[in-house]
Nucleic acid binder design. Sequence first.
DNA 1: AGTTCCGCTAACGTAAACGTCAACGAACGT
DNA 2: ACGTTCGTTGACGTTTACGTTAGCGGAACT
Lengths: 152, 152
Amino acid sequence: MNQEIAGRAGRVRESANATTYTISDLAKEFDITTRAIRYYEDQGLISPARRGSRRIYSRRDRVRLSLILRGKRLGFSLQETRELFDLYDNAPGEQAQMSHFMELLGARRAMLERQMEDIRAILDEIGAAEKEALRSIAARAPHPKAATSPSA
Amino acid sequence: MNQEIAGRAGRVRESANATTYTISDLAKEFDITTRAIRYYEDQGLISPARRGSRRIYSRRDRVRLSLILRGKRLGFSLQETRELFDLYDNAPGEQAQMSHFMELLGARRAMLERQMEDIRAILDEIGAAEKEALRSIAARAPHPKAATSPSA
DNA sequence: AGTTCCGCTAACGTAAACGTCAACGAACGT
DNA sequence: ACGTTCGTTGACGTTTACGTTAGCGGAACT
C-alpha cells in the first residue's frame, strides 16, 4: 500500500513529473473495486483524464476519491458529496456553501451523538444484566425473572 | 406522545390489566409507518397477538420495537437484530451469544471511532482553510493556491 | 343505516450502490 | 506470434427497507 514504490505501473508518465494512477492502483490503495470507481465517475464525482479509452487519475482525482470515501463513512450519500464538490468547484470558500456544509456536518454530528448514547445505553443494560446474573448465581437461583430481551 | 393518556384506543383490554397497543399507537409513538412495523413482523422480529385479523401489541412487543430502532440507529441490519433476538430467546444470558454480540458491538464502536476521526479531520481542514483565507485577505491577495477541494 | 376510519393482505415499485457477466481491444511479457 | 492481464463499455441483477396503490372487512361515530 505504499504508493511511492509500486510495480512499474503508470508513475511519471508524459512530460515533467505528473504523478498519475491507473484505476487498479487506486482500487488497491483504497480497497474498493474498479467498478465502484467507475460508478463514482458515472455519478459525476470524478472526471479522470483519458489516454485513448483508458482512465488516467491525477493526484487531484486521488484526493477526491479519499474525500468520497470519507463522506461515505460519515453517512453522506454520493449525491450529497457531489453537491458539495460542485459547490466548492464553482466558488471555493463562499459563505453560503460553507453554512450549507456546516448544516450537513452538524446533522451528522447529532447522529453520531445519538449513536454514542445508544451504545452507552446498551452497555448500561449489559452491565445491569451481568450484575443480575451474578446475583442470581450467588443465590443459586436458576433464573432471575427473564426481562424481555436485551441485545441490540 | 404520552402513552398513559391516549384517546381511548386499546388500553386495558380483556381480563386483568394487560396494557396493549394498536399498530398505529406504536407507529405514532415511534414516528414510523404501520407499513414498517408490519415489515418487521414479516422479517420475524415481532410476533404480536391477534384479535381476529388485527394485531395486538404487548409491552414486550413495544420494547422489541424500541430495540429494533436502536439497532437501526447503530447500523445493524434487521437480520442482525433478528439473530440477536433469536439467540437471546433460545437461551438468555449464554456466553457464546454474549461474545458474538460483543463482537458486533465492538465493530460498531470501531466504526464510530473512525467517524469521529473523520469529523475531526474535516474540522482540522476547515480550520486550516479559514486561517489561510484570513491570511490571504489580510495580504489582499485574491486567492491562495486553491487546493483540490475541501468538503466532505 | 350510512359513512368514515382503521386495519388487513397481496403485490408491485423504488432508490442507492454497487456486483456480475459479456464481449471486446490494447498492451505486456516471453 | 501469442496467451495473459488490464481496462472499457454496456446492461442486467441484487440487496435492504420500506412506499404505494388496490381491494376488502370490521368498527366506530352520527
